[in-house]
């Protein structure tokens, strides 16, 4: 297992979570406070007053400044202290760290690390695309983030853990192709099922009644962003020769994997579809079904975390072909976490 990967972008929240109320969240072991300025920009500061450590998230906003709820130390959006009680001199060290923030694709990304951001966060454009309808959520996971990476890079577990929702026998039976782009640090895992049973998740949402051609193309941008490009169509129906795909149903399943502590994780999930865009019944069904699937993973990984925490060090795992992509992800994470 690796440690935290710093100097990276992480999803801190959905944009709709951050408003004119102070919002606290722990990321990579550090507590941050978020709020939206009167101009609508999101601010991220360390959630601890420099004076006596009081959480700023338990304090109040005054315009675009944060007033500590204990003694009134007041901070602007850059983290600079602009007021202390009872005296005119503001100590030079009266400042809380401010974190770079990027809002895109419905997420609030925050840069965690001492270095300056070197690039923009990776994209999940479907989540804010009017050509797609998205349902989303976040579930707290009482397990280290690496267990969620393992889980998502090997979808053969769908057959056993998510039967009746997204799992069918063909998922575990179908070989995968794994690719790693070393230059860009991206892991790809592809599973193409030519003739598979249609699980309820897709049968009820697409209306397809028979067997299907099912493609699962994973694109993992370590450490935080995981994309599953899912294509569903009646068995034998493929994209047209020009690349268009009018008879396919496309679901973009997005996860943001943000460590909370060394043993807990924010499990952000979103499901964007390019069909039945205005059908609230489909939205409700996919939201409820995917949340159920995520909670099945959460229950399993919470147990696994306890097993790992209790085992002697040096336990030797066994890896087989289904783990080829997960092994690639682990290696990249270990490299990124190295000092």
């Amino acid at each position: 297992m690796t440690s935290f990967v710093r100097n990276q972008w992480y999803v801190a929240a959905y944009g709709h979570e951050i408003g004119r109320d102070l919002f606290g969240r722990t990321i990579l072991g550090g507590r941050l406070v978020f709020y939206q300025t009167s101009a609508g920009e999101v601010v991220a500061l360390a959630d601890r007053c420099v004076h006596r450590r009081f959480p700023l998230s338990e304090s109040r906003l005054d315009g675009d400044t944060v007033v500590c709820g204990y003694h009134g130390f007041t901070y602007d959006r850059t983290g600079r202290c602009v007021f202390v009680p009872g005296q005119k001199r503001i100590p030079r060290t009266a400042r809380v760290p401010a974190y770079p923030v990027v809002e895109r694709d419905s997420f609030v990304w925050v840069w965690i690390g001492d270095a300056e951001p070197v690039a923009q966060p990776p994209r999940a454009p479907w989540l804010a695309d009017p050509g797609y309808t998205t349902v989303c959520g976040m579930e707290p996971l009482a397990a280290r983030y690496e267990l969620l990476v393992d889980n998502l890079l090997d979808l053969s577990h769908e057959t056993y853990l998510h039967g009746g929702y997204i799992g069918t026998p063909e998922v575990a039976e179908t070989p995968i192709t794994t690719e790693v782009d070393e230059d860009r640090g991206i892991v790809y895992v592809s599973r193409r099922m030519a003739d598979a049973a249609c699980p309820p998740f897709y049968a009820k949402s697409t209306g397809i009644e028979g067997r299907i051609t099912r493609w699962q193309d994973i694109e993992y941008h370590p450490p935080c962003l995981y994309l599953l490009h899912s294509r569903i169509a009646p068995a034998g129906v493929l994209p047209d020769g020009d690349g268009s795909d009018p008879h396919g149903f496309h679901v973009e399943v997005v996860y943001a994997i943000t460590p909370e502590t060394a043993h807990s994780t924010h499990d952000f999930w979103a499901v964007a579809r390019d069909f039945a865009l205005d059908d609230h019944g489909v939205s409700d069904f996919l939201a409820e079904s995917n949340r159920t699937v995520v909670l099945q993973d959460v229950a399993a990984l919470d147990v696994l975390e306890q097993v790992i925490a209790a085992e002697p060090s040096g336990y030797q795992e066994l890896s087989i072909n289904i783990d080829t992509g997960g092994l690639a992800a682990r290696r990249i994470l270990a490299r990124m976490a190295a000092p």
Partner: peptide, 10 residues
């Protein structure tokens, strides 16, 4: 381009 690929033979 540094790219690795592993195919699992059906």
């Amino acid at each position: 381009m540094t790219r690795y690929r592993i195919e699992w033979v059906p």
